Simulated scan of single mutants.
Amino acid sequence: MKKIAVLVPCYNEELTIKAVVEDFKKVIPQADIYVYDNNSKDNTAQIAKEAGAIVVPEYRQGKGNVVRSMFRDIEADCYIMVDGDDTYPAEDAYRVAKVVLEGKADMAIGDRLSSTYFEENKRPFHNLGNKLVRMLINKIFKSNIKDIMTGCRAFNRTFVKSFPVLSKGFEIETEMSIHALDKKFLIGEVPIAYRDRPEGSESKLNTFADGFKVLKTILNLYKDYKPLSFFGIISLILLLLSGGMFAPILIGFFKTGLVPKFPTLIVAVGFLVCALVSFACGLILDTVKKRSDQFYEIALNMIESNKNR
């Protein structure tokens, strides 16, 4: 029987954590349930422990830091990660995990947006943010993932032990999705039900502050994972600016034989040089990225080899 670990990052979830732990114990009695308490100011840790979870403190604040510790510490064949706010039914999370257990995906996503999310979630800017992030990532990485930022996921051991967690906070879900796309992991999607937080339970997300962090993460990962495309776009913009400034000067020169706007010409040449430098940076970093991908594949082979021993 494959070993299953349920990972629950938590911060001030005393109203819901008992229900989360008990539901998973009923649905997946053979699973180990880990609650990583991220400096909660309430009784989250105590309630989780009394409910039967393995409680571990994580003193570095932020969901990304919690996930980093979970992935390093816990050994399992299948990992189920859910939030501690009781918004994801345990039955649906197990259906997501089955896709991984059956070998059909390295990372399986619980797709909220195709079911009840927009009906249950009463925060319109959250809904808009989910749509915007989904559109950006699918456009940039030429994919068709329906729910980029879901908190309900399942992973196999290879994904968990080879995923370099860089984010500190809630942008970790976006990082996971982009990493899986870039490294060509097999991604599965399962529509799941979503229910809003119960009365009295408050979201830790700041719509605008965390939204900007997610957009910044997308931009940084776009630069890191697709440097030729990223710097190529910058180069094209600079080239167009240079051409737009140089064209009137060139036309005037053909008509009069004079160059009356030397400052404009100097700026146009400067933009042209910057465009060439940007494109050269993209070419160099693209070569570095391909080399990095080769080493990553070797590391994956080593992980698989150690697992099968």
Rank of each mutant, 00 (worst) to 15 (best):
S114F: 12
I47E: 07
V66Q: 07
A209D: 15
S229T: 14
D293E: 14
V99Q: 01
D23I: 01
S114D: 07
S278D: 09
K131G: 00
S242M: 07
D106F: 03
C274E: 08
L215M: 15
V269Y: 09
N127K: 15
P248W: 11
R291F: 14
E202P: 00
P9S: 10
G84M: 03
Y79K: 06
K183C: 01
N121A: 07
N39C: 13
D85G: 08
E199L: 14
V100R: 06
R197N: 11
D210L: 05
E14L: 11
L15E: 09
V160T: 08
G252W: 02
E14H: 14
C274D: 13
I28A: 13
D83G: 15
I145A: 04
Y11Q: 11
I109T: 02
D77S: 02
E102P: 09
V267Q: 02
K142F: 06
L240N: 11
A53K: 00
K213A: 13
M149R: 12
V165K: 04
L300M: 13
S167V: 02
R197I: 04
E91I: 00
F155S: 04
D86R: 08
I17K: 06
D83H: 08
P191Q: 02
L265S: 07
S292L: 10
S292M: 06
C10N: 09
K18P: 04
C78Y: 02
I28N: 07
S143G: 13
S69T: 15
L258H: 12
V27F: 06
L285W: 06
E13I: 03
S177I: 12
D286A: 14
V190M: 12
Q294N: 14
M302T: 11
L265F: 14
L300N: 12
V288P: 04
G103V: 07
A51C: 10
L265C: 10
G169Y: 11
P263H: 05
C274W: 13
E75W: 10
K183I: 02
F71P: 01
A19H: 09
I178G: 02
C281W: 11
I80W: 00
T264R: 08
M135F: 09
A51N: 09
